[in-house]
């Protein structure tokens, strides 16, 4: 009797574990990585995306639902560079899942590339300082390609049975992506040399790629909410610099950028920032299309 019970339990456990091994479980911290891994793996994997484009990923609540998702993950794909430091390490610890704590199961996008804005001085008096550089890497298509390649290799490493499929999908993605880069770069030519004021320093990779210039930030220091005194100090430079736009991400409160827009005459614009940030940004291609279209539209309207 007991033997039957044990056999039944073992059989069930075996069935459950093979079922669990059927597909690689990926936990994407941000929508851009959910989208990228989807491009590279399609239905070979299951993806949980932890956050949405309408959330501030610097400040995520360590929700119990995320612990449950990390418990079953084989791979986490995140920005890294300490962007998720306030919530991810604690969640991983609570999940007790060693696979994703470090090593092959932990993929940090910012570690695959050279980051910009690496601080020379680490002092929190300078705001929310990221020792490994600016973590908002998703708006540079070249870096994205490098990251995609590294991520594809990681997928193949963790799931060798599907390695050929991952390789083939990366080849397909990189062809489409390179074609898109050509299209985006040509289309964005009028943006070159233009100045923007940003809400948070999350656009440096985009501006570096397109040859744009960031002339001010609504946050007095990275991560410090805009103050009225600081906004007032931006009026003159915004007015006098032939500024294209005051740029915020979809998740950011429009109050500050609208205020500066009213006082400087420069249009405030909300850019998607990540997949799902607006109706057009259904995937990475849509994200770039929408971002460039929204900025280009402003070059056509009469500037002050």
């Amino acid at each position: 009797m007991n033997k039957f019970l044990i056999a039944a339990v073992l059989a069930t456990a075996g069935a459950l574990s093979t079922q669990a091994q059927a597909k690689l479980q990926v936990f994407a911290c941000e929508p851009e990585w959910g989208s990228l891994v989807q491009e590279l793996a399609g239905d070979k994997i299951d993806v949980d995306v932890a956050t949405s484009a309408l959330q501030d990923v610097h400040q995520i609540e360590a929700k119990p639902s995320l612990i449950a998702k990390l418990r079953r993950a084989d791979l986490t794909v995140c920005d890294g560079a300490e962007l998720e430091v306030g919530w991810l390490p604690m969640l991983i610890q609570q999940s007790g899942n060693q696979k994703i704590a470090s090593g092959a199961g932990s993929f940090m996008a910012a570690s695959q590339i050279v980051t910009l804005e690496k601080p020379t001085q680490l002092d929190r008096a300078n705001g929310d300082v990221h020792p490994e550089g600016n973590p908002h890497v998703q708006m540079d298509p070249y870096r994205m390609l490098t990251i995609a390649k590294a991520l594809d290799a990681r997928l193949a490493q963790l799931d060798p049975a599907n390695a050929a499929a991952y390789q083939q999908r990366f080849a397909d993605f990189s062809t489409r992506w390179n074609a898109a880069i050509k299209r985006w770069t040509a289309k964005a030519a009028p943006l070159k040399g233009r100045n923007i004021v940003v809400h948070h320093n999350s656009w440096i990779y985009l501006t570096t790629w397109l040859g744009m210039h960031e002339i001010g930030s609504l946050e007095p220091k990275p991560g410090v909410p805009p103050t009225s005194a600081h906004l007032a100090s931006l009026i003159d430079i915004t007015k006098s610099s032939h500024t294209l736009a005051i740029v915020r991400a979809a998740y950011q409160d429009p109050k500050a950028s609208n205020w500066l827009s009213e006082h400087s005459g420069v249009t405030a614009v909300s850019l998607p920032f990540t997949v799902g940030g607006d109706a057009q940004s259904k995937d990475l291609f849509g994200l770039y299309d929408s971002t460039i279209d929204k900025l280009l539209a402003l070059t056509k309207s009469p500037s002050p």
């Binding site: 590339i113 050279v114 540079d140 070249y142 870096r143 490098t146 390649k149 590294a150």
Partner: peptide
């Protein structure tokens, strides 16, 4: 991509 790929000793 080699130029922007991180070398191990970052």
């Amino acid at each position: 991509s080699a130029a922007i790929a991180a070398a191990p000793p970052q």
